[in-house]
Every structure is written in structure tokens, then in C-alpha cells.
Amino acid sequence: MIRPAQRGPRERLVEAAERLTYREGAGVGIAALLKEANVARRSLYEHFGGKDELLAEVLRGAAAKDLDAYRAAMSAAGPDAARRILAIFDHLEAAVTAEGFRGCRYLGADLALQDPEHPAHAVAREYRAELHRLIQHELDRLGHAESADEAERIMFLIEGTLASAVTRPDARPARIAADLAAHILRLGPADASKRGRATSAP
């Protein structure tokens, strides 16, 4: 019987960092990471050059999985652009009510890592930019004149859901956010354009 290849130090480091940083935050110490991964300190530096790039790699993996999950939820909703956007909040409802949910990885990393040049910040920015592009694409299909701004508002609802689900889970923030997103979508291209002119008037 052929056994699967044992995971190497690199894979064990990533898996350990993924678990610990989500459970304890991005400020978890190197010693704890090495112990969890059962690897020597040398392996960390050989594969990642240090803890910073390991944390960035964990976020890259999480971002790829999260974006795939959003795309899958939107695809399952069918071709209608509005339904595809609202499906994001159905996905969030399931995510934030799942056992073990502890908040948004990207927000947690941004708050914990004070160095603005930390590579994890760039990963978080690109993740948010890609999610913004997915939403804006659907708003463009709906003909929203201010699709970039509307996508930003929906991003605000997504991130607010992830934050509120930690502190006020009983409020069901994903459902509240879905109602607000539906209101944004109901404004329609013409109404959105009028609102833009009204707010820009002296």
C-alpha cells in the first residue's frame, strides 16, 4: 500500500500559521508557530525568510479560497446580476454562523501588523480590490452609473458584516447587510445618477 507523501516543513508551517493566526491573531510568536508546525527555526527562514512572508503566504492562500467561494456563490445564483450580488450575503450568513468563526483574517492582520510595509497588507489590499472588481462588474451589468462607488458601499457592508458577526452575532448582520445591499440595487441607474448630481450640488 502506497502512503501519501508526508507534508514537508513548508506545508506544515503554512498550515500551522493558518490555524494559529486565525485563533490567536497575527501577533502570534515565532516559537508558537514552530512548535505547532513541529519544524526547526531554520526551516522558517529557508522557506519564507522569516515570519512576515509566512503570514503573507497564509493570507494569499486564504484570499484565493475566499474569492473562489464568493465566485461559486455568485455563479450558483444564476445569470441575474442583482441576485449574484445578494448571493454574497447568503454566503456570508453561512460563513459567520459556522462553528469556529472568529472574524475577518484581513482586518485582523491589518490591525495587528503596525508596519505599513508588512507584505500582508499588500495581500489584503489586493484581495479587497479583486472582490471590489467582482462586485463592480455585476453593477456595470445592471447599468449603474456610479458602479465603483456602489461597489465600495457593498464592500463596506461585507466588511461590516464580518466585524459585527464577532461582537453582535445575534443581530444577524448578514441579513441586515443584505437588506441594505438590496436597497442600493433598487436605486437603479437613473436614481443613482440623480443622487450623484444632488450630492454634488453647492
Score class of each variant (00 low, 15 high):
residue 180 L to H: 14
residue 40 A to D: 12
residue 157 L to D: 09
residue 12 R to N: 01
residue 58 V to T: 01
residue 176 I to W: 13
residue 3 R to W: 06
residue 165 A to V: 03
residue 94 A to Q: 12
residue 177 A to Q: 06
residue 6 Q to I: 12
residue 82 A to H: 02
residue 85 I to H: 12
residue 200 S to R: 09
residue 78 G to F: 12
residue 7 R to S: 12
residue 73 A to Y: 09
residue 160 G to S: 06
residue 198 A to S: 09
residue 145 A to E: 12
residue 128 R to I: 01
residue 108 G to I: 01
residue 50 G to Q: 06
residue 189 P to K: 08
residue 88 I to W: 00
residue 172 R to M: 08
residue 152 E to H: 09
residue 179 D to V: 12
residue 78 G to D: 04
residue 159 E to V: 10
residue 109 A to N: 04
residue 39 V to A: 08
residue 150 E to W: 02
residue 171 A to E: 15
residue 145 A to P: 02
residue 34 L to G: 06
residue 198 A to I: 05
residue 103 G to D: 05
residue 94 A to E: 15
residue 88 I to Y: 03
residue 59 L to W: 01
residue 182 A to G: 11
residue 154 I to D: 06
residue 159 E to L: 11
residue 72 A to M: 13
residue 42 R to D: 13
residue 159 E to A: 11
residue 182 A to V: 03
residue 6 Q to G: 07
residue 139 L to C: 04
residue 90 D to P: 02
residue 48 F to N: 11
residue 112 A to M: 09
residue 117 E to D: 15
residue 61 G to H: 04
residue 48 F to I: 08
residue 70 Y to I: 15
residue 150 E to G: 01
residue 10 R to T: 07
residue 35 K to C: 03
residue 104 C to E: 09
residue 60 R to D: 10
residue 151 A to F: 00
residue 176 I to T: 06
residue 168 R to H: 14
residue 79 P to A: 08
residue 129 A to L: 08
residue 135 I to A: 01
residue 79 P to F: 02
residue 122 A to D: 13
residue 163 A to P: 00
residue 132 H to P: 05
residue 179 D to F: 13
residue 130 E to K: 14
residue 192 A to D: 15
residue 130 E to I: 10
residue 116 P to L: 10
residue 46 E to F: 11
residue 105 R to K: 09
residue 173 P to H: 05
residue 190 A to F: 13
residue 117 E to Y: 11
residue 143 G to A: 04
residue 101 F to K: 02
residue 110 D to A: 13
residue 41 R to K: 14
residue 21 T to G: 07
residue 191 D to P: 06
residue 193 S to G: 06
residue 28 V to A: 11
residue 170 D to Q: 15
residue 95 A to E: 15
residue 79 P to R: 08
residue 133 R to G: 10
residue 144 H to G: 08
residue 151 A to I: 00
residue 84 R to M: 02
residue 119 P to N: 07
residue 194 K to V: 14
residue 67 L to F: 13
residue 112 A to K: 07
residue 197 R to N: 05
residue 21 T to R: 05
residue 114 Q to E: 12
residue 53 E to Y: 01
residue 106 Y to C: 01
residue 176 I to C: 05
residue 67 L to S: 13
residue 131 L to Q: 11
residue 96 V to A: 03
residue 192 A to W: 10
residue 66 D to V: 10
residue 132 H to A: 05
residue 198 A to L: 05
residue 78 G to S: 09
residue 49 G to K: 03
residue 75 S to N: 15
residue 34 L to E: 01
residue 175 R to K: 10
residue 36 E to G: 11
residue 125 R to G: 00
residue 47 H to C: 12
residue 146 E to K: 03
residue 104 C to T: 03
residue 111 L to R: 15
residue 173 P to M: 03
residue 106 Y to S: 02
residue 71 R to D: 15
residue 127 Y to Q: 09
residue 7 R to C: 12
residue 67 L to T: 11
residue 87 A to I: 03
residue 58 V to E: 03
residue 58 V to Y: 03
residue 138 E to Q: 08
residue 1 M to T: 11
residue 55 L to S: 04
residue 8 G to I: 03
residue 174 A to I: 07
residue 160 G to V: 12
residue 56 A to N: 02
residue 188 G to Q: 07
residue 139 L to M: 06
residue 45 Y to N: 06
residue 36 E to N: 10
residue 13 L to R: 02
residue 171 A to S: 12
residue 51 K to I: 08
residue 8 G to M: 08
residue 157 L to K: 06
residue 130 E to S: 13
residue 103 G to M: 04
residue 152 E to V: 07
residue 187 L to A: 14
residue 34 L to M: 07
residue 195 R to M: 14
residue 103 G to R: 00
residue 136 Q to P: 00
